[in-house]
């Protein structure tokens, strides 16, 4: 069961191609290589932390899959390592937000984190990977974007996969904050034991990564 007390971002409008000043479409080559590599015969378990959107649902409707859509980006960003200072507190916080319980063990083979890693406290990010590792398939692929410019929007953007093979990025904030500017070595310490499979700098200033075990 899920807690109803939160706000939401109506994301599905991006799937209707409504143009807005706050949003734009980006190419995301690594993401689409990943999507094209998914077998139509195999069963997939996919975690998308962004709010549920019709684009993602339509995309995966051609696969045998289970899509986890906790829509918990905002709630994850509110977790701080000061408040959740022990592994068990963090575990409970993630369970509440992501909804994976031991008895409902998932076997995730694709995880979309979008730009969340830029916004999480380092300890929280490590804790999240630890938490998710209980629910990962051994061939899991982890996809995300890292801001490579000095400043980034003050809160995570909203992402949705568009039917024509692009990603719609909607900035949720006009104000900016300093980017953590993670380089690969620092990233790998956050995402231990993952290794970089591919990375690519996009002209939007996002660096796209896919990691695997």
């Amino acid at each position: 069961m899920y807690d109803a007390s939160y706000s939401y971002i109506p994301l599905t409008r991006v799937d209707q191609q409504v143009s807005q000043d706050t949003g734009f479409a980006i190419n995301s080559p690594i993401l689409f290589d990943l999507l094209n590599s998914l077998s139509k015969e195999a069963h997939h378990e996919i975690l998308d932390i962004c709010p549920a959107s019709q684009g993602v649902i339509d995309l995966f409707s051609g696969y045998s899959c289970k899509l986890y859509l906790p829509g918990c980006v905002k709630e994850l960003c509110e977790i701080t390592s000061d408040e959740y200072d022990t592994a068990s507190k963090l575990y409970r916080a993630f369970t509440r937000r992501l909804g994976f319980y031991k008895k409902q063990k998932a076997s995730l083979n694709v995880i979309f984190l979008w730009d969340l890693p830029n916004y999480l406290d380092k300890q929280v990010m490590k804790g999240l990977i630890d938490y998710l590792s209980n629910h990962m398939h051994e061939q899991v692929k982890l996809h995300f974007y890292i801001h490579s410019q000095q400043h980034m929007p003050a809160s995570p953007g909203s992402y949705s996969i568009l039917p024509e093979g692009k990603v719609w990025l909607e900035n949720s904030s006009d104000t900016t904050v300093k980017s953590p500017l993670y380089f690969q070595e620092a990233l790998l310490s956050l995402f231990h034991p993952f290794k970089v499979k591919r990375s690519m700098l996009l002209s939007s200033g996002l660096k796209e990564y896919i990691l695997e075990l």
Partner: peptide, 26 residues
């Protein structure tokens, strides 16, 4: 999910047996 709809949870789907009209998914 209609525009503005709110959903949190999981969706389990089997592949569709052929495209429906208007399905633009490549």
């Amino acid at each position: 999910l209609e525009d503005g709809a709110m959903f949190k949870g999981s969706i389990e789907m089997e592949p569709r047996q052929g495209r429906v009209a208007g399905d633009t998914r490549p």
